[in-house]
Design a protein around this nucleic acid. Structure first.
Lengths: 122, 122
DNA sequence: CGCCACGGTATAGATTCGATACCGGTATCT
DNA sequence: AGATACCGGTATCGAATCTATACCGTGGCG
């Protein structure tokens, strides 16, 4: 089953998969699509701080990997909707857990950082 | 309770937490420590392809955030052991799920990439 | 006409990353 | 004694990546 691939092997294809998942904005975009399709500028507004370039690249990558779908309507002003595919929805499960962990453990991590002021900035 | 923080807000501290989790090698290092303490060169050998620089930086960051502990023994040749803290162990749960997802869905993603040869390289 | 909405591109500068070489201290081999 | 090896890292440098910011084309509307 899941035993055929091993992320620890340098040449394993799961490496590139994990790399994509770990890319800077993937967690945000996938989480932002959990409630259904969204437009480009909705995503840009919801994920604060993302630049249009970063959003475009993330969406293109996720689309190439079959995690999201892109649907352009021939209207004006233009309308483009992005949605999770079933595969993307299955990824949402572990990524939502990561997001929740991050939100829940902020105080622990801030406390740890405060304990080592020298490393604080990074 | 996890409601106090929201990763979608640009200024929310959970952002920096999620950024750290999503850093290039974090998933690998945390997963590599799941079975107990390991030495620097054990980690380097186990996580194929990681450079010493990347490993050092990842370990320092995780230590600063209280996710792993570093213990240096005064021996020769030198010995340094890294281990997950309880906090790090709690992060292992969602990260192991991410790793498993990656290993399980390699075929799906490779199929999706094959369907769009133009975007394949990235 | 003049301006706005939308879904992006273009460009440039800062940051991070990876590959590779090297280091200090001690034990062990010849 | 001298050479060599082990361990846990640094140092350096060029390449890849990310951010900020400005801009664009199409078409509708007042």
């Amino acid at each position: 089953m899941g035993e055929a691939y091993n992320v620890m092997a340098a040449t394993c294809p799961s490496r590139t998969v994990l790399h994509r998942i770990g890319a800077r904005w993937t967690v945000f975009v996938v989480n932002a699509l959990e409630d259904g399709p969204r437009r480009f500028s909705e995503l840009k507004g919801h994920i604060r701080g993302i630049t249009p370039k970063a959003l475009t690249e993330t969406l293109r990558s996720l689309e190439a990997d079959g995690l999201i779908s892109r649907r352009a309507y021939d209207e004006n002003p233009p309308r483009v909707e992005y949605a999770l595919t079933p595969l993307g929805r299955s990824l949402l499960v572990p990524l939502r857990a990561v997001r929740q962990w991050a939100e829940e453990h902020v105080p622990d991590i801030e406390a740890a950082r405060a304990r080592r002021p020298s490393d604080q900035g990074r």
